[in-house]
Amino acid sequence: MFTASTLSGSKPDQYAQLAEQARALLHGERDRIANAANLSALVYHALPQLNWAGFYFFDGTELVVGPFQGLPACVRIPLDKGVCGAAARTRTTQRIEDVHAFPGHIACDAASRSELVVPLVRDGALVGVFDLDSPVPARFDVEDQQGLEVIARLFEESLA
């Protein structure tokens, strides 16, 4: 298994290595809970400066917490609230440098300062979001966004 110490090279190289590990974890498995659990653990332990990494699944009305790593989280998020709701509603990745400046931010963990949320869509339907929080302001850059969008696409492709 990859750990932060085994990822090497440039940031894009590290995300390529992380994507390879994600492919190996997902290979042959179609259960979304199992795959979300493994990807949450992989990303949380491989990337530095995270305090939460996990999934929220869309139940047809709102987002409901799924597998994650980190402190206990908000259980339900309406699509008109917070960074996760914005990603789900707009179906666009949200990369927020300062969550306290984001209108309607939901503070599940007061230590979180920046956030990156990737919407999950399969066959045109909203599945949920892949959410990462950091206690470091502006933790996520464009390379992080691109790398984590690849991980999210791999998850989408794994769905039965």
Rank of each mutant, 00 (worst) to 15 (best):
D123V: 02
C84N: 04
A37H: 12
D59R: 08
V99H: 00
E143G: 02
L126P: 01
L71P: 04
L26K: 00
G124Y: 13
H105N: 09
A37R: 14
G70K: 06
L39N: 05
L39F: 04
F2K: 13
D13M: 09
H105D: 07
P78L: 01
P48R: 08
V127T: 13
Q21T: 07
A107F: 07
I151P: 00
S112T: 15
F68M: 03
A152W: 00
V142A: 15
V136R: 06
G82Q: 01
L18E: 02
A160W: 00
D13T: 10
V43I: 15
Q145P: 08
Q94L: 08
D133A: 03
V118Y: 00
P103V: 07
T93M: 15
S158N: 02
S40C: 11
F2S: 06
D80Q: 03
F155Y: 13
L79I: 02
Q146C: 08
H27N: 10
D59W: 05
L50R: 08
A41T: 15
E149Q: 15
S114N: 05
L71I: 06
G70M: 09
S40N: 06
K11L: 14
T90I: 04
P67F: 03
V136P: 00
V142S: 10
R122I: 05
A24T: 15
T92A: 14
A36L: 03
C84D: 04
P137A: 08
G104V: 08
P119Y: 06
V117T: 13
T3E: 11
S5T: 14
I33D: 11
V136A: 03
V150Q: 13
G9R: 05
A24W: 04
V150L: 12
E157I: 02
Q21E: 15
A22L: 03
P135Y: 07
S8W: 06
A36Q: 04
F102N: 01
A19K: 01
S10G: 10
D144G: 11
W52D: 01
G124H: 08
V75Q: 15
G147A: 04
G9F: 05
S40E: 08
S112M: 00
V83P: 01
G85N: 04
